[in-house]
Every structure is written in structure tokens, then in C-alpha cells.
């Protein structure tokens, strides 16, 4: 259901939820549960694989756990919890929108909402080049396996040297490939804007989605604060 909604409204709804999560004080277990319930409902109606999305959102935890640990050691358990829960819920909200919106539509929506064109352009290329780097890495991995990479002795220093060398080659190759992609886009008159096949049209369901997400997140924030 979320998949069919207008990307601009999804982005605005995301913004409303993110700001609500970031500014809600105090942020305890009950507060987090309220936001989690809202995002959980989104996950369910969009029919995304719940465990997969929950696991992917945890990618932010390594960055926050250290600071949460410091806060906890300083005797601020509530702050430690907020340092873990807020980024996790924010990542979950972002994943929910990204997983239910095609990237070109998302970027076009960002552009139409006034996000600077240069930033949208960078995001466009970043998204495109991620696949390029992944593909190059895959090719290099296969080539290394074919030449017995797995049979090498696992000496730590040697492995580090090999990995850093591989990384350098990977970036050099990806850069070359990225140049080719840029040229092929420019050759077809690309001027920095992705034009969608059909311009998006707003319906009452799109507005209802935005209204529901914003009202739910901000009511919860207001109730917690009061």
C-alpha cells in the first residue's frame, strides 16, 4: 500500500517522524514503543519482510553503541537508551520509505521539495555508483578465487597488505567505470535532472498518509512531553 503513495508525501511524512523522534524528551521505553508501533504499522501495511528490515536498521548501532556505553558508564541510563533508540528508529523510518519508493521517484521528489539540485545529483550518482563498485568488487573476488586466493596462508600482515591493495585497485577501476557511465549519460543529453516517465499526481490517499504520519508522530511527542 505504501508503495503506491506519492514520493513527495512520503518524504514529508518521513521528515515529520524524524523531527518528532529527534526532539522528543524524555525518550524512555514507552516513548520509543509509541514510535516503534507507528513504524511497525507502516512495515505491516507495506508488506515488507519485517525481520529483514529490522535487522538492516541495526546498521546504525555500531556508531551509537559506543556513545551509549559512555553515557551509561557516566550513570545516565536514560540518555544511553535514547542514544540507541533514536538512531535505530530513525534508520527504520528511512528504510521504510526507501524500501517502498523507487530511487528515481525519491530523488525527483526530493528535488521538487526544494532539496538543492547538486545534492540530488550527488545522491543520484552515489546510488548508481554503489552498484558499479559492488559489481567491480564481485569481479575482483571471482578473479582472486580463480587464482587460489582462498588457499593463501592467513598471515595477518599479508592479508592486510592484500586487502589494502585490492581496495586501491577496486577504487581505481570503479572510478574508470564511473567515468564511462557519466559519459554515456551526458551523451544522451543528461543535464543533471532525472525526468520521470509520468509526473506524479497527488491524491487524497497521499495527503492522508502525510496527515496520519505527522499527526500520529507529533501527538505522541506532545503527549510524552506533557
Amino acid at each position: 500500500m505504501l508503495h503506491r503513495r506519492d514520493a513527495r508525501m512520503k518524504l514529508l511524512a518521513l521528515l515529520a517522524v524524524l523531527v518528532a523522534v529527534a526532539t522528543t524528551q524524555p525518550f524512555g521505553l514507552v516513548t520509543a514503543s509509541g514510535f516503534a508501533a507507528l513504524l511497525g504499522a507502516g512495515l505491516l501495511i507495506s508488506r515488507l519482510p519485517v525481520t529483514g528490515v529490522l535487522a538492516r536498521a541495526a546498521v546504525v548501532l555500531p556508531f551509537t553503541v559506543t556513545f551509549a556505553g559512555i553515557a551509561w558508564l557516566a550513570g545516565e541510563a536514560g540518555r544511553a537508551f535514547a542514544l540507541i533508540a533514536k538512531p535505530y528508529l530513525s534508520a527504520l523510518a528511512v528504510l521504510l520509505v526507501v524500501a517502498t519508493t523507487p530511487m528515481p521517484a525519491l530523488l525527483a521528489a526530493a528535488s521538487s521539495l526544494g532539496v538543492p539540485r547538486m545534492l540530488v545529483l550527488v545522491l543520484q550518482f552515489l546510488y548508481r555508483y554503489l552498484f558499479v563498485v559492488a559489481e567491480q568488487a564481485q569481479h575482483m573476488w571471482v578473479a582472486a578465487q580463480c587464482r587460489g586466493a582462498a588457499l593463501r596462508t592467513s598471515h595477518r600482515a599479508g592479508r592486510f597488505r592484500a586487502a589494502s591493495g585490492t581496495l586501491a585497485v577496486l577504487f581505481a577501476r570503479s572510478y574508470e567505470k564511473a567515468e564511462g557511465i557519466e559519459r554515456s549519460m551526458l551523451a544522451r543529453c543528461f543535464d543533471g535532472r532525472i525526468r520521470l516517465l509520468a509526473p506524479p499526481r497527488l491524491g487524497w490517499r497521499d495527503l492522508a498518509l502525510l496527515a496520519f504520519a505527522a499527526v500520529a508522530a507529533w501527538s505522541w511527542r506532545w503527549w510524552v512531553a506533557s
Partner: peptide, 11 residues
């Protein structure tokens, strides 16, 4: 271009 994968990038 020589490498079609460089040219085809939309879904």
C-alpha cells in the same frame, strides 16, 4: 558505447 552496462542504468 562499448560497454552497454555503462549505458543502461534505469530500472
Amino acid at each position: 558505447f562499448q560497454d552497454s552496462d555503462e549505458q543502461l542504468f534505469l530500472p
